[in-house]
Write a protein that binds this DNA or RNA. Structure first.
Lengths: 330, 330
DNA sequence: CTGAAAGCGCTAACAC
DNA sequence: GTGTTAGCGCTTTCAG
C-alpha cells in the first residue's frame, strides 16, 4: 500500500524512456509525444504507483501543493469550523494545510507567516485581524504568492475574496429586535473592529441609529465585562457582534442573577455550534462558516490553477436563526 | 525584513570559504574547524541573515522541521485546544504543523496520513481513535518516523506517550457523586471507546460497580439521544465521559422540560471552555488539554533531537472542577 | 582543516 | 518526438 519510494527514474526505466520524457508526459505535455510512448509511461506509472515528490518538485520552482493558513485562535469555534472547511476542501484537491495560530499577536503572526513562506507554501489563507497591512503586502509582493484574507482589517487589493453579507446580517438582527418590540437596544462592538464587523454594525444602525454602543474585547470575557453597563443603562435587548460575546453576556447575566431573555434579550452573530446548547438557546445571525472556509479554499485552488484569471469576489448569504434568547416585549 | 533568499553560496563567498565549510560549521561540526574560520562563517551568516532552506535540506535526507498532526474533528473544543498546544510548542521550537482533520473516517485519515508522510514530515502526532493499528504500524515502521498517539484505541509500542490520569478522573467523578449523596447513577460511554476512556470508566466503576451503562455516540447528539433512557430509569446523576456528551444531555433535558441539576445531576469530563458558559455551569473532571498538547509536542521535539533516548511516558494530573450541575441529594 | 564533487528527485531548455 | 544537460540549495564523503 505504501511502497518504499518510487522515483521518476524507475518509471523511466520501466517504460524504456528517459526521465525527461516521463516528466513531460506526466505534466500535461503528453500531446507532444507519440501516443505509444504516452501509453507506456502511464502504464509504468500506474504499475509502480508512482507519484512525483512534492518536495523535489518544489525545489525546481513548482508548486508545493501546500497552503499556509493563519488564524488568530483555533480554539474559537468560528475559526475551527472555518479551518475545517478550508482543510477539507484543500485535502480534497490534493493540497495540504499548514496551520498557524496567531494568538491575536502581531509579532507571532508575522513569525508564523515568515515560517510558512519559508516552507514554500503556494498560497496563504489569512483570517486574522491583527496582521498588519505591510506584512501582508510584503508576503504578497515579494513572495508573489496568492493570498486570500478573511475577517480582515482592510481588504487587500489584487486578491480573490470571500465574505458573508455582513451588512445584511446586521440589518436582519436589527429588524428582528424591532419586530419583537424592542427600542432600548445596545450593540457591543469589539475594540479591534475588522471591516466585516463594521459592516454588521452599519447594517444594524440603519434601524437603530442611536443604539448604545459598548466597546469591549471580542471574546467571552469581553461580553461578560459589558453586562454591568447593560444593566445600568436598563437596556432591553443587545446585539452581540459575535456569539462569543453573547456567551460572555450570558455568564455575566447569570452572575448578576438576571435572566436571559427576561431581563435582557440577546442576539448573537455567527451561529457557532454551541448556540443550540446554551440556555436559552441563542438567537443569532447565522453565517455559513464551514462554507466560507470551503469557498476560500476553492478560490485558492482555482487561482493557483490559473493565476491570470480575473479576481473574483464571492458573497455568501446569512440568515436569522431564531431561538430562545429574544423575547417579545409586551 | 524579509530578504530575497540568501543561499549558502552567498554566505560562503562572503566568508571567503567553500559552501561545504559553511554547511559543516553551521551544522554542529564547528569544533573541527579553525576558530577563525568559524568566526568568519558565523559573522557572514549573521550579516546576511542566512537560514538553511528546510526544503533543500530535506531533500538530502535531513529533517523537514515539520510535524504532521491528525485529529478527528478540529471543530471539537477538546481537539482545537489540543492542537493549539501542539502548534504553539512546535512553532516555538522551530517546527511547523501540518494539520489534517480525519473526520472519524478511517479512509480519510489514512489518506491524510499518507499525504503527510509523502510531504516528508519528521514525525506524527495522532489523536484519533479510528485510525487502525496496521496503518499506524506501517507509518511507524516503513517510514521510521516517530509517532505520538493520544486518545488512541491501543497504545503503540516503541513511542513516547503522554496521557492524563484517566483512571483517577473517573474515580474523582464517582467519589464526588457519592459524596453528594447519589446512588442511582448512570454513566454514558461512547461506542468507540478508546483506552483512555475505558480507564475513566474503570475508575468510575470502582465506586459504582453497577452503574447503568448507556452506550452512545461520543458527541452532543449522542448525549441528547440518551436522555430519554436516563429519565425512564429515573437516574439521579449521570457521568458523561466527555463534556460534549454532557452538553447534549443538557439539551435533551431542556427538550423534555426537565432541569439540570434538579431533575438530573450531570458531571462531565474534559473541562472544555464552554463548561463555564452553559447553564448551569458544568461540573466536570478537568484535564489539562492545552498542556497535553504542549507535552506531546515537546516529547516529539526531544525525540527528534535524540532519536535513541529511551521512550518516556508522561502522565498529567486531572482535577475536579466543581460548578453547578450536580446537586446534593437531600 | 578545507574544498571539490557527487548526488537527493525533479523540471526545463536545448539539442539530436 | 525524445534524450541530454544543467541546475534548485543543501549535505556529505573523500581527497588534498
Amino acid at each position: 500500500m505504501c511502497a518504499k519510494k518510487v522515483t521518476i527514474r524507475e518509471v523511466a526505466k520501466r517504460a524504456g524512456v528517459s526521465i525527461a520524457t516521463v516528466s513531460q508526459i506526466l505534466n500535461g505535455k503528453a500531446m507532444k509525444f507519440d501516443p505509444l510512448t504516452v501509453q507506456k509511461v502511464q502504464a509504468a506509472r500506474d504499475e509502480l504507483g508512482y507519484e512525483a515528490d512534492h518536495l523535489a518538485r518544489q525545489m525546481v520552482g513548482k508548486q508545493s501543493k501546500t497552503i499556509g493558513i493563519l488564524v488568530p485562535e483555533i480554539t474559537n469555534s468560528f475559526f475551527s469550523t472555518l479551518v475545517k472547511g478550508i482543510e477539507e476542501e484543500l485535502l480534497h484537491s490534493g493540497y495540504i494545510s499548514m496551520l498557524c495560530n496567531g494568538g491575536f499577536n502581531g509579532a507571532k503572526e508575522e513569525k508564523a507567516l515568515l515560517e510558512l513562506a519559508q516552507r514554500g507554501v503556494d498560497g496563504f489563507i489569512i483570517a486574522s485581524p491583527s496582521i498588519s497591512d505591510e506584512v501582508l503586502k510584503e508576503i504578497l509582493q515579494i513572495k508573489k504568492r496568492p493570498v486570500i484574507v478573511l475577517d480582515q482589517k482592510t481588504t487587500v487589493e489584487r486578491s480573490d475574496e470571500v465574505a458573508t453579507d455582513d451588512f445584511n446580517g446586521g440589518l436582519l438582527a436589527a429588524q428582528y429586535l424591532k419586530k419583537m418590540g424592542h427600542t432600548k437596544v445596545a450593540v457591543v462592538v469589539p475594540d479591534l473592529a475588522t471591516v466585516n464587523i463594521m459592516h454588521r454594525l452599519q447594517g444594524f444602525l440603519v434601524e437603530f441609529p442611536q443604539a448604545l454602543q459598548l466597546k469591549t474585547e471580542l471574546s467571552k470575557n469581553g461580553g461578560q465585562a459589558v453586562v454591568a453597563e447593560l444593566l445600568d443603562q436598563k437596556i432591553e435587548a443587545v446585539f452581540a457582534l459575535s456569539d462569543e460575546l453573547a456567551f460572555g453576556i450570558y455568564l455575566g447575566m447569570r452572575q448578576n442573577d438576571k435572566s436571559v431573555p427576561d431581563d435582557l434579550s440577546v442576539i448573537g452573530y455567527d451561529d457557532v455550534e454551541m448556540c443550540r446548547y446554551v440556555t436559552p438557546a441563542l438567537t443569532t445571525v447565522a453565517q455559513p462558516i464551514y462554507e466560507l472556509g470551503k469557498q476560500a479554499a476553492d478560490l485558492m485552488v482555482k487561482r493557483l490553477a490559473d493565476p491570470t484569471s480575473p479576481y473574483v469576489k464571492r458573497i455568501l448569504p446569512v440568515e436569522l436563526a431564531i431561538r430562545g434568547s429574544v423575547k417579545v416585549k409586551i
